[in-house]
Design a binder for these strands. Sequence first.
RNA 1: GGGGGUGUAGCUCAGUUGGUUAGAGCGAUCGCCUGUCACGCGAUAGGUCGCGGGUUCGAGUCCCGUCACUCCCGCCA
Length: 594
Amino acid sequence: MNKYRTHNCAELTKKNKDQSIILSGWINKKRDHGNLLFIDLRDNYGLTQCVIDKSNKFFKDLEKIQLESVIKIKGTVVERSKETINSDLKTGEIEINIVSFELLGTCKELPMPIFSDQDYAEEIRLKYRFLDLRRKKIHENIILRSNVISFIRNKMQELDFLEFQTPILTSSSPEGARDFLVPSRLNPGKFYALPQAPQQFKQLVMVSGFDKYFQIAPCFRDEDARADRSPGEFYQLDLEMSFVEQEDIFNVVEKLMVSLFKKFSSKKIINENFPRISYEDSMLKYGTDKPDLRNPLSISDLTNIFTREDVKFDIFKKLVSKGSKVRSILTKKTKDKPRSFFDNIDKWAKEEGASGLAYFTFEKDKQITAKGPVGKFFSEESLKEIMKITSAEVGDSIFFACGKINEVEKISSLARDKIAKDLNLINENEFSFCWIIDYPMFEKDQITNKIKFSHNPFSMPQGDIKNIDFKNPLNIKAYQYDIVCNGVELSSGAIRNHIPELMYKLFSVAGYDKKEVDEKFKGMINALSYGAPPHGGIAPGIDRIVMLLANEKNIREVTMFPMNQNAQDLMMNAPSEISENQLKELNLSLKKKK
RNA sequence: GGGGGUGUAGCUCAGUUGGUUAGAGCGAUCGCCUGUCACGCGAUAGGUCGCGGGUUCGAGUCCCGUCACUCCCGCCA
């Protein structure tokens, strides 16, 4: 017991009847009846109703105190009469008869209401984040986040993982995202970089013989924000294991995710053994490598249909003859949907920057026909072929898009989500996890046409190491995998390449010579040549996991002190200008603004 | 870097075809009210309609520019 409180605002019940107690907290709400005043006192734990009437000398003072002021109340616990019990409150069976009070912290007029479910402007919320965080919903989200992190820590320790910290000031790496840079005072003209992830360090931890590592790791990437992507910084459950194959990583992560999601959500997990989908299949069937498997719709390739003589849809035929692809989405039993349903989706696609979506519905009178604006261009034979490819039946409809492969993948993926949403096909009470596997090691840069790493340059290529087909690098697959839940990419990982000679070869395919690799990845390559164990790992994103568990669409709702979209902290005023002196010490000068 | 949305009182929002003095709810201040739990009732204060320019007899409303916030594309191995 201390001078501020004997109990918190959630723990008093009728068992405490007649006790003298002290509570401290914020004034959540006042209900002033003139000669009788109710005060809802709030702290982290809950609410307790306190009462005072005009016979008490403190009445007048208490009546005037601003909401959200912090006060200490001395009083007695009183059982409420039956008709005044509030069953919504944990403490609803009792109230506090106020004997005296003390003002601990005054409060100015509030820039926004605390006790309200109303949404208000992000700018104000971020500027007054300390007030925003008092609100129930976000307060609970942040507590959830804390509990999730504790749970993960315990679980990882149970599984014999060791938690280590790795440096925050490290070196810039040429691959991947833009680095945040920190000038070095002691080394003029040189810069540290904040880690985009502790990738190289965790591999070094394995080379150092620690076997299993994890860290709730801050990661820094200087890229533009999205609703599910904080600008600047975010957290990963970074983990790495020695002497493992892909399956070993999958086992650990599946166990962790299933126990975590079961513990913190009542939603159903569809497959506790997460299905594995190859990158190639995922791109074809879902148009993306982060499919929402709650969505039953799937995409088919109809490109060949548009090479047939008996299909007269010339716009698509012309595009196909020039190398474009046609992808379709089938919707079941939609023949009675109004014209507006189809046209809205076409209109939506145009707004998304596509050339629109063609559609028709399969009908049968004497023969199979296609009903819809472009239906007349298809012969019965071609329609039968389409039905075979897409497993369509009479009464189903089909949407299709034509374009360059990556364009058509993108729009069909978006359309798959959009149509499912319009048809209400997604069960919001499920979690559907999957692994995306067999990522290609390399890809062609769209602009420069050069071969580059498609994901992590340190991933192990698949197949017999002695017989890797370096002449056709685009065919090389990697032991590289992503975990996806409800269309949200939670993490990516890989079995690492621990063989320096192989590393040099792969880097040379991406246009780095030996000298360059030695320069840029000195620590890494050097370490791998002193007896490195085969190893691999993964790094699930903490923020996104909490988003899924809290059922939030925006990452700021699960981040205590987030920055806005322009990577500014409106509360702390970061980034800010620095003094001439600081610049001088760092050996920096700023370009003059034009 | 590009596209969309939003911007009116401290907060959330309404504001018709361009037309008199720009409204409501919450909050604030003052008054009344002894059983509320979104307490109730009455009154008062509170506005550079984001900012700048233009069209017009007249602009919150129309046009051009610009800024801020947000969503998306690019980007994020």
